[in-house]
Design a protein around this nucleic acid. Sequence first.
DNA 1: TCAATTCATAGCCAACGGGTTATCAATACA
DNA 2: TGTATTGATAACCCGTTGGCTATGAATTGA
Lengths: 107, 107
Amino acid sequence: MPNAHDVLFKTLADPTRRALFERLCREGEQTVGALTSEARISQPAVSKHLGLLKQAGLVRDRHEGRQTHYSAELGALAPLVDWTKEMAGFWESRFDDLENLLNRMDQ
Amino acid sequence: MPNAHDVLFKTLADPTRRALFERLCREGEQTVGALTSEARISQPAVSKHLGLLKQAGLVRDRHEGRQTHYSAELGALAPLVDWTKEMAGFWESRFDDLENLLNRMDQ
DNA sequence: TCAATTCATAGCCAACGGGTTATCAATACA
DNA sequence: TGTATTGATAACCCGTTGGCTATGAATTGA
């Protein structure tokens, strides 16, 4: 039972796949052909990665004739941002606890 | 040549490993034994994961007698935060471009 | 000093993942 | 209508990874 964090981290863990996503973020919508021409892998490999990115909700596809245009779905990063904030939150609350402890010891 | 993002995403992609890191964030410093007792895997497996987390800079270890205490190194998450901000930045700048374009078309 | 505890390392194995080539479906065009 | 183009799917290969057991090193305590 993989949760949203699992899927996001796993999907973005592969450098090639993350590069595709970054490119879509930087340059906006791209066809599979355009993405393949810059990637150093075959077109089927690119399609596979795009399929996984789509499953993770990180990209959308739009069919136009025989071309497929992909674009980044940036909102999908939200759980990742939330997770990092949550972890940082625990950090700070523990730090506060320490501070409180020290303050109480001061009195 | 794996960069910082590679290492972070790959290290956090495994659910078991991420759970260990989360636990260290939530509850602070823990010994290997304490972490193992809650995890559903063997002690050597836990040690392996902790080793990878340490290599990624996500945890520190502190030896005390025959025990090893691990704690989260939260600053290590910074590149991840930066990356998400960067991606969001591209998104917004492209949105601004579109807005500018529409504004110019309005005149 | 000997036994027990704590953790790390080594070696092994099954599953997964990312790459390839081959091929097919759908669309565009001469 | 026949051919070329575009992208998705299938089948396969191989390196990586995450789990295990066995074992060793270091420390503690009887």
